[in-house]
């Protein structure tokens, strides 16, 4: 199977650590990622209005291109995952959107949502399997108490994304377990970090990040992992000094556990306490 890969804008710039570790791990785990040529930005937010056609085209181009190359599209960034899956769902279900997008892009063979969009974590869970992954771990993260931070874009709306139980997700905890770490469940792990409010309303963002970190620290998490560059940025840059914990991309810990060397992430904050 060809694993077409959609890195998205942030992974090519500010979140190279997320990207590079992922490529190295995927190669090692037997699903090498092949970057989709000439991909465009997905738009970062899903255009909710049914008449927002132009805003769907970036994602649609990627989906069509992947359809023509075997039909699988893997992504890593939570926002890209969210937008790609939802636009794909629109193209499969909404006749008006489908017709307009196909007409605009002058697609020879009309696209109807055939591409299977997978988050990297879904490939790990469903195709590699966490039992198999655990066997491949050479440097287990034994003794490390790590909380998974899902945020919103991986999980919701669950009917379309079908990633995991939106209110009681398990995927990242099972992932951490496979790496030998001790997963820490905490109540705020599926609440929003306020995302782009970091730009327009930093006060609000700091407050919400404070709630998330308090919840994680109450359950004694020593570090957090996430799949989203913006979540990671907020949890680090908008954390109160007394609440700071290291926040890693999940692929960084995966690379570590598999014994792979990758470039360190740019935003760093303190050691695990």
């Amino acid at each position: 199977m060809l694993y077409n890969y959609y890195p998205g804008c942030t992974l090519s710039t500010k979140a190279k650590a997320l990207d590079q570790a992922a490529r190295a791990c995927a190669a090692k785990l037997g699903f090498p990622l092949v970057e989709l040529p000439e991909w465009q930005c997905c738009g970062a937010v899903y255009p909710l209005a049914p008449d927002a056609i132009a805003e769907r085209l970036g994602a649609a181009r990627a989906l069509i291109s992947a359809r023509d190359k075997g039909g699988v599209l893997v992504t890593l960034c939570s926002a890209c995952h969210h937008v790609l899956k939802r636009v794909n769902d629109d193209l499969a279900r909404d006749e008006e959107i489908r017709n307009k997008v196909n007409a605009y892009l002058e697609v020879k063979e009309p696209y109807q949502g055939e591409t299977k969009v997978l988050h990297f974590l879904e490939v790990l869970r469903d195709q590699v399997g966490f039992a198999k992954l655990a066997q491949l771990v050479t440097h287990p993260l034994t003794g490390r108490k790590i909380g998974a931070y899902y945020g919103c874009m991986l999980l919701r709306p669950s009917k379309v994304l079908a990633f995991d139980d939106p209110e009681n997700p398990q995927l990242l905890e099972n992932f951490l377990q496979a790496l030998g770490a001790t997963p820490v469940r905490y109540g705020m792990r599926n609440e929003c970090c306020t995302g782009y409010m970091a730009v327009t309303n930093p006060g609000l963002c700091k407050q919400m990040v404070g709630e998330i970190l308090r919840s994680a620290r109450d359950e004694e998490a020593q570090a957090l992992i996430t799949a989203c560059p913006l979540c990671r940025y907020n949890l680090v840059a908008n954390a109160a000094p007394e609440q700071k914990v290291p926040v890693y991309y999940f692929t960084e810990l995966l690379a570590q556990a598999l014994g792979l060397q990758t470039e360190a992430a740019p935003v760093q904050a303190g050691g695990e306490g």
Partner: peptide
């Protein structure tokens, strides 16, 4: 935007302009 943290991920900026 000039006053913003250079570490701010692109996705935040794109999102703000979209929203």
């Amino acid at each position: 935007l000039e006053h913003f943290d250079p570490e701010l991920p692109q996705q935040a900026l794109v999102a703000v302009f979209r929203k």
